[in-house]
């Protein structure tokens, strides 16, 4: 009996040591997305939040680079967070939203519609950027299943070592530095700042299908249903970038969808003058994405819309939020200065 217990104990101990070692190696080889490819850091940063949010933005790069939660708070007292990611497709957005609803119920969810043009999974690399940082749960499992491209396997999302083991000979200082630490946040409540200026030129024309893919629209339907279940207002937006092109047919389709579901839809491209966007000064990559100046203008305009249409409370003066946003604003301004000096 004693011998059997010793054997079982030995086996258990060996397994613990082995799995511990594999866990450590797994953390080491997984990309840290902290100093390079920071887009991959955004999904995980959400879980560091200590306060809840009235507004949750979801979508692709057009949300995480076009809205400044700092401006929204400082100008209107609106608390917000951006759950956006590079090429975050609509199913990713759905599951990130479902994941967020586990811990908070925002009053408004803002969804940027550009990613609806993709009806199929696009790239493993972007899947990883969006899903690696996601907390384990039903939502993550759903997101993985919905978005895998050919050749990907489910298990490697659950056990990152299976995917990243080939990085063992490509480890950088970043990997060692953030082995067991997530480091400082790279975003400002999901917003990624750029201060450079690269004026917009001619918009390249690409062939397109005048109808948005049915799969995307079905997922949008699910997002609408999810928000309705939680009593959250859904706002559809198309942020003011001029490239990739947002076609009139798509715009009409989304407008019809919004109308049929009783949702608000703002195509901000049409509001560029009202917002004050100048594509000669407010973009850092020729009109694809906005720089901080553009993002602040958009946030000021949209903050007013949100406050007016959804009667969001002004949280300024509430100690918990003030402390949080004061620290964030200081970091935000420092970063703005640092980047501007770099430019």
């Amino acid at each position: 009996m004693k011998r059997n217990l010793l054997v079982i104990g030995g086996v258990v101990l060996a397994c613990i040591v082995c799995f511990g070692a594999l866990f450590a190696v797994s953390r080491l080889v997984a990309p840290k997305y902290h100093d390079t490819l920071i887009d991959g850091h955004l999904t995980g940063e959400y879980y560091r939040e200590t306060t809840d949010h009235d507004v949750l933005f979801v979508g692709d790069c057009e949300v995480f680079e076009h809205f400044s939660p700092v401006t929204l708070y400082n100008e209107y007292g609106i608390t917000s967070y951006i759950r956006g990611g590079a090429q975050q497709l609509v199913w990713h957005s759905y599951y990130l939203l479902e994941d967020a609803f586990r811990t908070e119920t925002p009053k408004v969810v803002v969804y940027n519609v550009l990613a609806l043009k993709y009806g199929e999974p696009q790239s493993e690399a972007y899947n990883r950027l969006n899903l690696d940082g996601m907390r384990f749960g039903r939502a993550k499992l759903g997101a993985i299943r919905a978005g895998m491209t050919d050749g990907e396997d489910f298990m490697s999302y659950l056990f990152p070592l299976l995917r990243y083991h080939d990085r063992i000979d490509k480890l950088s200082k970043e990997d060692w530095t953030y082995w067991f630490s997530d480091g400082d946040p790279v975003s400002f409540k999901g917003y990624v700042m750029h201060t450079g200026v690269d004026p917009a030129t001619e918009t390249p024309k690409e062939p397109y299908d005048p109808k948005l893919p049915e799969t995307s629209m079905a997922w949008l339907e699910r997002i609408a249903a999810l928000c309705e279940t939680h009593g959250t207002a859904l706002v559809l937006i198309k942020s003011p970038s001029i490239y990739p092109e947002w076609h009139a047919e798509w715009d009409a389709e989304i407008a019809a969808f919004a109308k049929s579901h009783g949702l608000r839809y703002d195509n901000m491209i049409a509001e560029n003058d009202a917002i004050g966007i100048d594509m000669q000064t407010d973009t850092y990559d020729q009109g694809q994405h906005l720089n901080v100046s553009g993002a602040e203008k958009v946030s000021r305009w949209f903050g007013a819309v949100l406050q007016k249409e959804y009667g969001l409370r002004d949280h300024r003066g509430e100690a918990a939020y003030d402390a949080d946003y004061a620290a964030l604003t200081e970091r935000y301004e420092n970063e703005k200065r640092r980047l501007s000096e770099g430019n």
Binding site: G10, V11, A14, A21, V25, L161, L162, H165, D166, I168
Partner: peptide, 26 residues
């Protein structure tokens, strides 16, 4: 003994997982 055998097995599996050529991209 069993413990030694399990340890060898775990070392084999561990080294395969780390140094093996498998998964996406292979």
């Amino acid at each position: 003994g069993t413990v030694c055998s399990v340890c060898v097995l775990l070392v084999l599996i561990g080294t395969i997982l780390i140094f093996g050529r498998y998964g996406f991209g292979f």
